[in-house]
Design a protein around this nucleic acid. Structure first.
Length: 340
DNA sequence: GACACGTGGCT
DNA sequence: TAGCCAAGTGT
């Protein structure tokens, strides 16, 4: 009933005419093979992250570290600072671990099979399949949020996410083929991102409209169905902006595990319902107002306090601190210094 | 399977 | 505007 060859041909034709030009894609017409390092780096940066947000980071990383060997040699703190602002910081820790594993265990060359890629830190089912397909042109079932949405509409899947995931994966697998596997994966994702969008899909521009069950229902945007998410709790905390006589700021390095793990941060209280005000130094602490921040699974109000002092911290200029800090602390620092 | 894990843009 | 959403992975 579903004409897989016709759908495949239609989407690949569409991709030949409409493929986006992206920094990590080989330029059209170029015979150069796509560099697996750049494919891997882009895929990790794009996990749960938009193209406009990731693109400048990709440019900076590939300029500073043109090969996986260069990346493997970077100090942890330098890498974490370069990732600051991109979010999901476990990705940065795993990125470094992966680069070092490729350098140490694979002679500096990315392995080409899905199974070997999957064994690398921070490389899951999606990224392993994407690198195998895009960098090495191997047939692989590349399933991300875009592909799930396209499949859920093409087949009008009534099961809500995340329960529908195995079924959507089986449907996507129907299209995996050794003809242009890398282009197929990217075509599906370009379609999902630009045409088969979550809201207001552009079905009149869709090369797969002729075979789309959701379009026949008259409400394609209803797919994929989703189960309602739990409500996001709210937490409070105190953040301490301690400066020395020269204006440098006291930072700490956060533990490797957990929220903002491995990142530089401001000293803070615990975060909870009514955290104690317990600054890291005695001193003349002044309230500097508060900042709001929203994480994936809770929102946060951070009361900012400022004082001058000394002590055993990572003392950093305000400009360097702003660059190395995750966004929540960058906001708190700006609030603290602005009020100082 | 459920949950932890960031951020910024869009509606 | 408050929520939804983006090329997921690890535990």
């Amino acid at each position: 009933m579903t004409d897989v060859p016709s759908l495949r041909a239609a989407l690949l034709d569409w991709y030949d005419a409409h493929a986006r030009s992206l920094p990590w894609r080989a330029s059209p017409g170029s015979e150069a093979k796509t560099d697996p390092y750049r494919v891997w780096l882009s895929e990790v940066m794009l996990q749960q992250t938009t193209v406009p947000h990731a693109a400048p980071y990709f440019e900076r990383f590939t300029t500073r570290w043109p090969t996986v060997g260069d990346l493997a040699a970077v100090e942890d703190a330098e890498l974490m600072a370069a990732w600051a602002g991109l979010g999901y910081y476990a990705r940065a820790r795993n990125l470094l671990a992966c680069a070092r594993a490729v350098a140490a265990d694979h002679s500096g060359a990315f392995p080409q099979t899905e199974a070997e890629l999957l064994a690398l830190p921070g490389v899951g089912a999606y990224t392993a399949a994407a690198v195998a397909a895009i960098a090495f042109d191997r047939p692989a079932n590349v399933v991300d949020g875009n592909v799930e949405r396209v499949m859920s509409r093409l087949f009008a899947v009534e099961t809500p996410l995340p329960a529908a995931r195995p079924e959507l994966r089986r449907l996507a697998a129907l299209f995996v083929d050794d003809h242009r596997p890398g282009d197929w994966a990217q075509a599906l994702m370009d379609l999902g991102s630009g045409v088969c969008r979550p809201r207001s899909p552009l079905c009149d521009q869709c090369p797969l409209a002729f075979g789309c069950e959701a379009l026949k229902t008259g409400a394609p945007e209803r797919y994929p169905l989703k189960t309602k998410k739990a409500e996001r709790p709210h937490r409070r905390g105190h953040a301490y902006v301690l400066t020395d006589a020269t204006g440098r700021v006291a930072l700490v390095r956060r533990p490797d595990k957990g929220l903002l793990g491995g990142m530089a941060g401001l000293p803070t209280s615990d975060w909870g319902a009514a955290p104690d005000f317990a600054p890291p130094m005695e001193g003349d602490w002044r309230a500097a107002g508060s900042v709001e921040h929203v994480f994936t699974h809770f929102s946060l109000t951070l009361e900012v306090h400022v004082a001058e002092g000394q002590g055993d911290f990572l003392w950093t200029t305000a400009a360097e601190a702003a660059k190395a800090l995750p966004t929540v602390f960058r906001k708190a620092l700006e609030r603290g210094l602005g009020a100082a």
